[in-house]
Protein backbone atom coordinates (compact mmCIF):
# COMPACT_ATOMS: atom_id res chain seq x y z
CA UNK A 1 0.00 0.00 0.00
CA UNK A 2 2.78 2.41 1.00
CA UNK A 3 4.65 1.46 -2.18
CA UNK A 4 1.54 2.17 -4.27
CA UNK A 5 1.10 5.61 -2.64
CA UNK A 6 4.78 6.39 -3.23
CA UNK A 7 4.43 5.47 -6.94
CA UNK A 8 1.30 7.66 -7.26
CA UNK A 9 3.11 10.60 -5.62
CA UNK A 10 6.03 9.97 -7.97
CA UNK A 11 3.63 10.20 -10.94
CA UNK A 12 2.19 13.52 -9.69
CA UNK A 13 5.69 14.92 -9.08
CA UNK A 14 6.74 13.86 -12.60
CA UNK A 15 3.80 15.76 -14.13
CA UNK A 16 4.59 18.93 -12.15
CA UNK A 17 8.31 18.67 -12.88
CA UNK A 18 7.57 18.43 -16.63
CA UNK A 19 5.18 21.39 -16.34
CA UNK A 20 7.78 23.45 -14.46
CA UNK A 21 10.47 22.70 -17.05
CA UNK A 22 8.09 23.69 -19.86
CA UNK A 23 7.10 26.88 -17.98
CA UNK A 24 10.76 27.89 -17.52
CA UNK A 25 11.65 27.01 -21.15
CA UNK A 26 8.65 28.64 -22.87
CA UNK A 27 8.64 31.73 -20.63
CA UNK A 28 5.12 32.70 -21.79
CA UNK A 29 2.37 32.88 -19.12
CA UNK A 30 -0.35 32.78 -21.81
CA UNK A 31 0.85 29.45 -23.25
CA UNK A 32 2.16 27.74 -20.09
CA UNK A 33 1.16 29.41 -16.81
CA UNK A 34 3.18 29.05 -13.61
CA UNK A 35 2.48 25.70 -11.88
CA UNK A 36 2.54 27.22 -8.38
CA UNK A 37 0.23 30.09 -9.30
CA UNK A 38 -2.14 27.64 -11.02
CA UNK A 39 -2.27 25.27 -8.04
CA UNK A 40 -2.94 28.23 -5.75
CA UNK A 41 -5.73 29.35 -8.09
CA UNK A 42 -7.14 25.78 -8.24
CA UNK A 43 -7.23 25.53 -4.45
CA UNK A 44 -8.86 28.98 -4.24
CA UNK A 45 -11.61 27.74 -6.57
CA UNK A 46 -12.79 25.40 -3.84
CA UNK A 47 -13.60 28.42 -1.66
CA UNK A 48 -15.76 30.15 -4.27
CA UNK A 49 -19.54 29.78 -4.38
CA UNK A 50 -19.81 30.18 -8.19
CA UNK A 51 -17.44 27.21 -8.65
CA UNK A 52 -19.67 24.93 -6.57
CA UNK A 53 -22.77 26.09 -8.41
CA UNK A 54 -21.07 25.38 -11.77
CA UNK A 55 -19.81 22.04 -10.46
CA UNK A 56 -23.31 21.09 -9.32
CA UNK A 57 -24.77 21.88 -12.75
CA UNK A 58 -22.07 19.87 -14.54
CA UNK A 59 -22.28 16.88 -12.20
CA UNK A 60 -26.06 16.89 -12.46
CA UNK A 61 -25.73 16.54 -16.24
CA UNK A 62 -23.22 13.69 -15.85
CA UNK A 63 -25.42 11.89 -13.33
CA UNK A 64 -28.58 12.25 -15.44
CA UNK A 65 -26.75 10.97 -18.54
CA UNK A 66 -25.17 8.15 -16.55
CA UNK A 67 -28.45 6.99 -14.95
CA UNK A 68 -30.30 6.98 -18.29
CA UNK A 69 -27.39 5.17 -20.00
CA UNK A 70 -27.07 2.61 -17.21
CA UNK A 71 -30.79 1.76 -17.03
CA UNK A 72 -31.04 1.46 -20.82
CA UNK A 73 -27.78 -0.54 -20.97
CA UNK A 74 -29.09 -3.05 -18.41
CA UNK A 75 -32.38 -3.43 -20.33
CA UNK A 76 -30.73 -3.84 -23.75
CA UNK A 77 -28.00 -6.16 -22.39
CA UNK A 78 -30.58 -8.43 -20.71
CA UNK A 79 -32.64 -8.49 -23.93
CA UNK A 80 -29.48 -9.25 -25.96
CA UNK A 81 -28.63 -12.17 -23.65
CA UNK A 82 -32.18 -13.50 -23.79
CA UNK A 83 -32.90 -13.10 -27.52
CA UNK A 84 -30.14 -13.74 -30.05
CA UNK A 85 -32.09 -11.94 -32.81
CA UNK A 86 -32.22 -8.79 -30.67
CA UNK A 87 -28.48 -9.14 -29.94
CA UNK A 88 -27.74 -9.46 -33.67
CA UNK A 89 -29.67 -6.31 -34.55
CA UNK A 90 -28.53 -4.32 -31.54
CA UNK A 91 -24.83 -5.12 -32.07
CA UNK A 92 -24.99 -3.03 -35.25
CA UNK A 93 -26.59 -0.10 -33.36
CA UNK A 94 -23.86 -0.30 -30.69
CA UNK A 95 -21.10 -0.51 -33.32
CA UNK A 96 -22.46 2.63 -35.02
CA UNK A 97 -22.84 4.50 -31.70
CA UNK A 98 -19.28 3.58 -30.70
CA UNK A 99 -17.79 4.93 -33.89
CA UNK A 100 -19.81 8.18 -33.98
CA UNK A 101 -17.64 11.31 -33.52
CA UNK A 102 -19.34 12.65 -30.38
CA UNK A 103 -18.43 16.29 -30.73
CA UNK A 104 -19.75 16.29 -34.30
CA UNK A 105 -23.02 15.02 -32.83
CA UNK A 106 -22.97 17.91 -30.37
CA UNK A 107 -22.76 20.33 -33.27
CA UNK A 108 -25.69 18.57 -34.99
CA UNK A 109 -27.70 18.72 -31.78
CA UNK A 110 -26.95 22.43 -31.43
CA UNK A 111 -27.92 23.04 -35.04
CA UNK A 112 -31.19 21.22 -34.36
CA UNK A 113 -31.75 23.98 -31.76
CA UNK A 114 -31.91 21.68 -28.78
CA UNK A 115 -31.30 23.64 -25.57
CA UNK A 116 -27.60 24.31 -24.90
CA UNK A 117 -27.91 22.96 -21.38
CA UNK A 118 -29.28 19.57 -22.47
CA UNK A 119 -26.93 19.06 -25.44
CA UNK A 120 -23.99 17.93 -23.18
CA UNK A 121 -26.33 15.38 -21.53
CA UNK A 122 -27.15 13.94 -24.96
CA UNK A 123 -23.46 13.74 -25.91
CA UNK A 124 -22.54 12.09 -22.62
CA UNK A 125 -25.41 9.59 -23.01
CA UNK A 126 -24.46 8.71 -26.60
CA UNK A 127 -20.91 7.93 -25.51
CA UNK A 128 -21.61 6.17 -22.21
CA UNK A 129 -24.52 4.02 -23.39
CA UNK A 130 -22.55 1.77 -25.83
CA UNK A 131 -19.72 1.42 -23.28
CA UNK A 132 -22.08 0.41 -20.48
CA UNK A 133 -24.15 -1.87 -22.76
CA UNK A 134 -21.02 -3.77 -23.76
CA UNK A 135 -19.85 -3.96 -20.13
CA UNK A 136 -23.18 -5.24 -18.78
CA UNK A 137 -23.61 -7.66 -21.73
CA UNK A 138 -20.12 -9.18 -21.26
CA UNK A 139 -20.66 -9.47 -17.50
CA UNK A 140 -24.03 -11.25 -17.89
CA UNK A 141 -22.64 -13.52 -20.64
CA UNK A 142 -19.81 -14.55 -18.32
CA UNK A 143 -22.23 -16.01 -15.72
CA UNK A 144 -21.60 -19.76 -15.58
CA UNK A 145 -23.90 -21.78 -17.87
CA UNK A 146 -23.57 -24.72 -15.47
CA UNK A 147 -24.92 -22.66 -12.57
CA UNK A 148 -27.81 -21.49 -14.74
CA UNK A 149 -28.58 -25.16 -15.54
CA UNK A 150 -28.43 -25.99 -11.83
CA UNK A 151 -30.96 -23.22 -11.10
CA UNK A 152 -33.22 -24.55 -13.85
CA UNK A 153 -33.15 -28.12 -12.50
CA UNK A 154 -33.84 -27.00 -8.92
CA UNK A 155 -36.43 -24.45 -10.04
CA UNK A 156 -34.72 -21.58 -8.24
CA UNK A 157 -37.07 -18.54 -8.41
CA UNK A 158 -35.87 -15.85 -10.81
CA UNK A 159 -35.57 -13.21 -8.05
CA UNK A 160 -33.27 -15.50 -6.05
CA UNK A 161 -31.23 -16.21 -9.20
CA UNK A 162 -30.78 -12.47 -9.78
CA UNK A 163 -29.63 -11.74 -6.22
CA UNK A 164 -27.54 -14.87 -5.58
CA UNK A 165 -26.14 -15.74 -8.99
CA UNK A 166 -26.32 -12.89 -11.48
CA UNK A 167 -25.61 -9.77 -9.39
CA UNK A 168 -22.64 -11.22 -7.43
CA UNK A 169 -21.09 -12.36 -10.75
CA UNK A 170 -21.94 -9.23 -12.70
CA UNK A 171 -21.14 -6.49 -10.16
CA UNK A 172 -17.35 -6.89 -9.69
CA UNK A 173 -16.46 -6.48 -13.40
CA UNK A 174 -19.16 -3.84 -13.72
CA UNK A 175 -17.66 -1.78 -10.85
CA UNK A 176 -14.64 -1.04 -13.02
CA UNK A 177 -16.77 -0.15 -16.07
CA UNK A 178 -19.03 2.11 -14.03
CA UNK A 179 -16.26 4.02 -12.27
CA UNK A 180 -14.32 4.65 -15.47
CA UNK A 181 -17.58 5.56 -17.27
CA UNK A 182 -18.29 8.17 -14.58
CA UNK A 183 -14.94 9.93 -14.90
CA UNK A 184 -15.10 9.64 -18.70
CA UNK A 185 -18.60 11.15 -18.48
CA UNK A 186 -17.25 14.20 -16.61
CA UNK A 187 -14.54 14.72 -19.23
CA UNK A 188 -17.06 14.47 -22.06
CA UNK A 189 -19.69 16.66 -20.46
CA UNK A 190 -17.15 19.39 -19.70
CA UNK A 191 -15.88 19.25 -23.32
CA UNK A 192 -19.45 19.49 -24.60
CA UNK A 193 -20.18 22.40 -22.24
CA UNK A 194 -17.12 24.24 -23.56
CA UNK A 195 -18.23 23.75 -27.18
CA UNK A 196 -21.82 24.73 -26.41
CA UNK A 197 -20.53 27.50 -24.04
CA UNK A 198 -23.08 26.59 -21.39
CA UNK A 199 -23.39 29.39 -18.86
CA UNK A 200 -22.97 28.47 -15.17
CA UNK A 201 -21.15 25.17 -15.78
CA UNK A 202 -17.55 24.02 -15.42
CA UNK A 203 -17.29 23.95 -19.23
CA UNK A 204 -18.73 27.49 -19.36
CA UNK A 205 -16.18 28.71 -16.80
CA UNK A 206 -13.42 27.08 -18.86
CA UNK A 207 -14.68 28.76 -22.02
CA UNK A 208 -14.59 32.18 -20.30
CA UNK A 209 -11.16 31.45 -18.76
CA UNK A 210 -9.74 30.52 -22.18
CA UNK A 211 -10.46 34.10 -23.25
CA UNK A 212 -9.54 36.02 -20.10
CA UNK A 213 -7.16 33.94 -17.93
CA UNK A 214 -5.03 30.94 -19.01
CA UNK A 215 -4.02 30.38 -15.38
CA UNK A 216 -7.68 30.00 -14.41
CA UNK A 217 -8.18 27.59 -17.35
CA UNK A 218 -5.39 25.35 -16.04
CA UNK A 219 -6.70 25.68 -12.48
CA UNK A 220 -10.17 24.58 -13.60
CA UNK A 221 -8.63 21.63 -15.46
CA UNK A 222 -6.83 20.56 -12.26
CA UNK A 223 -10.03 20.94 -10.22
CA UNK A 224 -11.96 18.79 -12.75
CA UNK A 225 -9.19 16.15 -12.56
CA UNK A 226 -9.44 16.05 -8.75
CA UNK A 227 -13.25 15.79 -8.87
CA UNK A 228 -13.07 13.09 -11.57
CA UNK A 229 -10.74 10.99 -9.41
CA UNK A 230 -12.93 11.50 -6.31
CA UNK A 231 -16.06 10.46 -8.24
CA UNK A 232 -14.32 7.43 -9.77
CA UNK A 233 -13.26 6.26 -6.29
CA UNK A 234 -16.71 6.93 -4.76
CA UNK A 235 -18.46 5.14 -7.67
CA UNK A 236 -16.21 2.11 -7.36
CA UNK A 237 -16.64 2.00 -3.59
CA UNK A 238 -20.45 2.33 -3.77
CA UNK A 239 -20.82 -0.48 -6.34
CA UNK A 240 -18.44 -2.76 -4.43
CA UNK A 241 -20.37 -2.09 -1.21
CA UNK A 242 -23.66 -2.82 -3.01
CA UNK A 243 -22.20 -6.09 -4.37
CA UNK A 244 -21.12 -7.21 -0.89
CA UNK A 245 -24.51 -6.35 0.64
CA UNK A 246 -26.27 -8.49 -1.95
CA UNK A 247 -24.40 -11.60 -0.83
Amino acid sequence: MAKKTAYSLGGILFIFATWLILYITVKNQVVIPSPLKTIKEALLLFTKGYFYSALFNTLLRVIIAFIISFILAVITAVLSCKFSAFAGVFNVVIAVLRSLPTLAILLVILVLSVSRTTAPVAVCFLTLFPLLHTGVYSAISAVSKEQIEMCKVYKVPFKKQVFNLYLPSVLPPLCLDVSSALSFGIKLTVSAEILASVYGSIGGLMYEASIYSPTMLFALAIAVCIIGIIIEVIGKFAFEKAGKRLR
Binding site: E146, V153, Y154, K155, V156, N164, R247
Partner: peptide, 23 residues
Protein backbone atom coordinates in the same frame (compact mmCIF):
# COMPACT_ATOMS: atom_id res chain seq x y z
CA UNK B 1 -33.03 -33.44 -8.41
CA UNK B 2 -29.57 -33.72 -9.96
CA UNK B 3 -26.12 -34.66 -8.68
CA UNK B 4 -23.88 -33.03 -11.25
CA UNK B 5 -20.44 -34.29 -12.23
CA UNK B 6 -18.96 -31.11 -10.75
CA UNK B 7 -20.57 -29.63 -7.59
CA UNK B 8 -22.04 -26.50 -9.23
CA UNK B 9 -22.21 -24.57 -5.95
CA UNK B 10 -22.38 -20.78 -6.12
CA UNK B 11 -19.07 -19.46 -4.77
CA UNK B 12 -20.40 -16.08 -3.62
CA UNK B 13 -22.82 -17.51 -1.04
CA UNK B 14 -22.36 -19.80 1.96
CA UNK B 15 -23.02 -23.55 2.07
CA UNK B 16 -26.24 -22.84 4.01
CA UNK B 17 -27.42 -20.32 1.40
CA UNK B 18 -26.53 -22.70 -1.45
CA UNK B 19 -28.82 -25.30 0.11
CA UNK B 20 -31.65 -22.96 1.08
CA UNK B 21 -31.53 -21.40 -2.42
CA UNK B 22 -32.95 -24.61 -3.96
CA UNK B 23 -35.73 -24.75 -1.37
Amino acid sequence: SFVFQEPRLIDGITVYKNLSLVG
